Simulated scan of single mutants.
Amino acid sequence: MKFETGMENNTMSPSDSAECAGCAANPALLDDFKHAIHALGGKWKLEILFALMNRAIRFGALRRSLDGITQHMLTAQLRELERDGLVLRTVLAEKPLRVEYELTDAAYGLLPAFRELLTWSKAYGARGHAAAREATLGAELT
């Protein structure tokens, strides 16, 4: 039995794309890709970056904007994002002490990638979610 996903016509071999020509054979490119995925991959990291897209935000306001995140998790993820050069932490000499977080230029460089992810999600995300719901519903009915 052959399963069709609907993506058969959208596939291409690596040699069809000049952008990825030789990607699989180049360990340095794989290392760069792994670094990028590690910097962005982590619970809450993308949500944190998205929340910081428009302005610098104080810790408490950032936590309130991310429903369900714990203080410990937010602190840990912000430290990793800061270590990876994506978030800047600024301590303002005020009483009481005020700390703000904002995106670095490196993080703003991700905007085109975020736009592409949103475009992809609009085109394919809802369909994938709907198909998963239908499959679950179908399994429950049988």
Rank of each mutant, 00 (worst) to 15 (best):
Y108K: 07
Y101K: 02
K45Q: 00
S65Y: 00
E116V: 06
L103N: 06
H35Q: 12
L86G: 11
I57M: 14
M53V: 09
R83Y: 14
N54K: 08
A93W: 01
H35L: 03
L30D: 06
A51P: 07
L74I: 13
G42V: 05
G41F: 03
Y101V: 01
I69P: 00
E82H: 13
G68E: 06
F50S: 09
E82Y: 02
D105M: 12
A113C: 12
Q71W: 07
A51V: 01
G85N: 07
H35M: 06
R58P: 06
M73Q: 15
L52F: 01
T104A: 01
L86Y: 12
M53W: 00
H38C: 03
A113I: 10
L81G: 15
T119K: 13
M73N: 11
R98Y: 10
A51E: 11
N54M: 07
V91E: 13
R98N: 12
P27K: 11
L78D: 09
L78E: 10
N54L: 01
P27T: 03
E47M: 02
R55N: 11
M73S: 11
M53Q: 12
L66Y: 01
V87M: 05
G42T: 06
L86K: 08
T104E: 09
L111C: 05
R89C: 13
A93D: 12
K34W: 15
L78C: 02
L49H: 04
L118T: 10
A39N: 10
V87T: 05
L118Y: 05
R83P: 07
R98G: 09
L62V: 13
A39C: 11
T70D: 10
V87E: 05
L66C: 00
L74K: 10
R79E: 15
D67T: 10
E116H: 03
R115P: 03
T70G: 15
A107Q: 04
E100F: 11
L88V: 09
H38A: 02
G109K: 01
L29K: 14
K43G: 04
R83I: 08
D31L: 09
M53C: 11
G68V: 10
D84C: 13
L88S: 10
D67M: 04
E80A: 10
L74P: 01
L81Y: 03
D31T: 14
D67L: 09
L46H: 04
L74T: 14
A113W: 01
Q77C: 04
E116Q: 14
I37P: 00
L86Q: 14
A51N: 04
G85Y: 00
G68I: 06
R89N: 00
V91S: 12
V99L: 03
L117W: 04
D31R: 09
A61T: 13
S65P: 00
L103H: 08
D31A: 12
G85P: 10
L118S: 14
V87Y: 04
L46C: 08
V87W: 00
Y108P: 05
F33C: 07
V99Y: 02
N54Q: 11
Q77T: 08
M73R: 03
G60S: 13
E116D: 12
L29F: 11
G68S: 11
E100M: 09
Q71G: 13
K43C: 01
R55L: 00
K43W: 05
R98Q: 14
L49N: 05
I57D: 03
H35D: 12
L62Q: 12
L30T: 08
F114D: 04
L92G: 03
L66Q: 08
E116P: 02
L81F: 08
A36M: 07
R98A: 15
